[in-house]
Amino acid sequence: MKLIKLLSLGLILVIFQFASSDAGDITGFVKAKRSKYLPKTVVYIESAPGDFIPPEKNPVMDQLNMIFSPHILPVLVGTTVDFLNSDDVAHNVFSPDESADKMNLGTWPKGDIRSFTFKNSCEKVCDPVLLCNVHPEMEAYVVVIDNPYFSKADDSGFFKISGVPPGKYNVKVWHPKRKAEDVSIVMPDSGSVEIEFALKKK
């Protein structure tokens, strides 16, 4: 009986401990004069303590109908991205940016995949642009962030960063052509925080 009481007490303590370190969400909206800017926005925490492991399953950036899809892909530093060609025509992927080692994956046909690991960690954010030298109008961005607390806004500007541990953070916005003021937040032990960003010309 005493053992059961001790086990129950231990379980309560574990549950309490788990609950006290619960992570919360940062949610909100990005606003802009033109709605076309909204889904190109990435909201992220500038820096967060901890060691973070890239996902085991590689995110895919497709090339379909001569468009990179997704157009903007936020990833944790060290993530390997698979570049798929789903078009009937050959595509190339290269980046003129140092942050992506000025990589050039060559040109490959439909169905093939070539991969690249975005391993350059930046104090701020690395945003190498990706281009196709076969089709100059094609453009995409891989936004490399040094923590997993980021979210891409949807068409309405809504974003949600999940699992953020308690603490003080500086929340930033990345956009290829716009900018927004940083927002400082205090993530409470429980619950979520709502914030808002207004995009304006860089």
Binding site: P96, D97, L131, P136, E137, M138, E139, K177, K201
Partner: peptide, 19 residues
């Protein structure tokens, strides 16, 4: 660009300026 409603047709991604 903010005021343009009739989206132009790109003849080259803006980032090609870097190239």
């Amino acid at each position: 660009a903010d005021q343009t409603k009739d989206e132009p047709v790109s003849l080259g991604a803006d980032a090609y300026k870097k190239v």
